[in-house]
Nucleic acid binder design. Sequence first.
DNA 1: CCGCCGAATGTAACTAGTTACACAGCTTGT
DNA 2: ACAAGCTGTGTAACTAGTTACATTCGGCGG
Lengths: 337, 337
Amino acid sequence: MANTRSRKRANLRDVAKLANVSVATVSRVLNTPDSVAEATKAAVTAAIAELRFVPSAAARAINSGRSRVVGALVPTLDHAIFARYLAAIEQTLSGYRLSLVVATTKGDAAIEAEKAQTLVDIGAEGLIVSGVTHEPGLYDLIERCQLPAVATSYYDPDFHLPTIGYDNAGAGRIALQHLLDLGHSRIAVVHGSLIGNDRTLARLKGLEDTGDAELSFVEADLSIEDGCKSAQTILSAAHRPTAILCLSDVLATGVLYEMQRQGVGVPQDVSVIGIDDLPGSAHASPSLTTVHLPVVRMGHATAVAISEWIENGLKPSGMLLATELVARDSTGIRRPA
Amino acid sequence: MANTRSRKRANLRDVAKLANVSVATVSRVLNTPDSVAEATKAAVTAAIAELRFVPSAAARAINSGRSRVVGALVPTLDHAIFARYLAAIEQTLSGYRLSLVVATTKGDAAIEAEKAQTLVDIGAEGLIVSGVTHEPGLYDLIERCQLPAVATSYYDPDFHLPTIGYDNAGAGRIALQHLLDLGHSRIAVVHGSLIGNDRTLARLKGLEDTGDAELSFVEADLSIEDGCKSAQTILSAAHRPTAILCLSDVLATGVLYEMQRQGVGVPQDVSVIGIDDLPGSAHASPSLTTVHLPVVRMGHATAVAISEWIENGLKPSGMLLATELVARDSTGIRRPA
DNA sequence: CCGCCGAATGTAACTAGTTACACAGCTTGT
DNA sequence: ACAAGCTGTGTAACTAGTTACATTCGGCGG
């Protein structure tokens, strides 16, 4: 039998030896095949096939100085909003022949900094982070490595990284204004955890100008289940609100379910509004009024920005994406009494 | 001013020169700091800081022969089932100090093969694919590169790659049996696209043994919206079925919404069952009876399998994960008529 | 018939790290 | 007092590609 010394992967020189050519020629066959004579090419190709040669990505990377990888740090994948956003990023990066490495942080800045380091360790050429609240260690890393990095989901022209996102406070304001316009003055607000979550914080900030409405607040985990629980809390309150403003559609979905279960009419008895505009929200029953956040556009824009930065050195400026009210059936005029 | 020739990233030799030591010493400071004298270490550290030296990932990779990256090919990120599964994979890989590159295929085998090539090009050490239907090109690639690769979401002990997944036909069978047990004999089946989707195909296969029930089929895109549409189609049929079996919870959610909207009682007028057991399904109204697919466990198991294979050369055997009926409120005994 | 040009190929020097081995200098044991 | 042993460091050879430059050979023009 032929010596099956295939214990180790073949390299360029093995191929060159077998084909009786130089390493340069093999490299040429791989990269500029037109510059090689047919006969030589055939011999090299045969050797490549025989040795099952596959060029080493690392060796290529060391020469080109490129890894063609960009890293994204997100709190979780287990939430439609981040999943859609990453899907858009991946698609667009793919058009630039860049690959996406995903790392999840559980919304913990320390984990984020740690994972950012591992992204740098595997050679990421750019970083995408969520929000504008991070560890100093992360900023250090970005600075030290001169790493293109953009922050998303939060527009802030004064942030020291380019931000591509929307006006979270504005989104909150739009939702509140809609309820105020409908005459509601006793409103329950259901929001996710505040620790380390600048998006939620900003949305709450947008609710400061309440006119003469009275707001009460319920904190919940970002899940349908906790949306249900929050609804229970709200319904059992002494002075029941006439509207519920959820800072996330996931929570609103839970609230809607609970209302249904308890036979509370939406929007007759209570109006419900969300923020996000998830794919399912339009088809909920009743369909959910919400503030649309352009996460897909944000993903595309982010991917374009980081790609251009990496490929052409064009540091992007920030980008504010518009949010807009999508009035559907879950909100209505406050009933006279 | 100091010569700001920082046009190019500093490398090991630059640091060595500045610190007046050899490259080996710098490398030691980085990797085995305890083997270096304090004074030397300090000098090197200072030089590293001054030059803002960051070691090249590619150069490390070329020496270790490791990229510490594994690639996952999924049809889409925009579906909770894949997102959850990837989240679990990422978490577990992270424990092995491996990173996850995600590539989406839109369920197209050709795109899959292409993206697999780019994953190899960036040096992925392992591949995770969905299902058991792929292009020959993909198999070639895996074979040529001797790449650890596992197929998921579909258990098939005879497949030439290790498979980690569940019995899709069995899941379909369980759902059908549940409806049969409840006395239903006119059942509508709502399923996703069949082209290239072996999971859906297998689930349908599980519905072959119908007893004396009569099945009708509706194909739909995997979205809540198409679930709604399918429900409309079914409701407007001449001979209305008494139960609807959805091959995916997303579709079932849409069906549930539509029933609500049309005032059709679930489960009084019609029973609805899904497959997947998405996080929201338990809280839908009514709560959705479904077949639980252990996607999180699957993600963990897959990540462990590929990691052990990569790190220790232990090629995993396949793994069958149990599915089970989760009886909730959306199914009930067929009403006498 | 000689020189020039260009195509095809080879040589060797890069890329940026890791590491085997050699060796200097000091301490310790006998 | 001298060998042995340890610590700390340097030299140079690796890893696996790309590529600038040199070389060979053939054809063609003068």
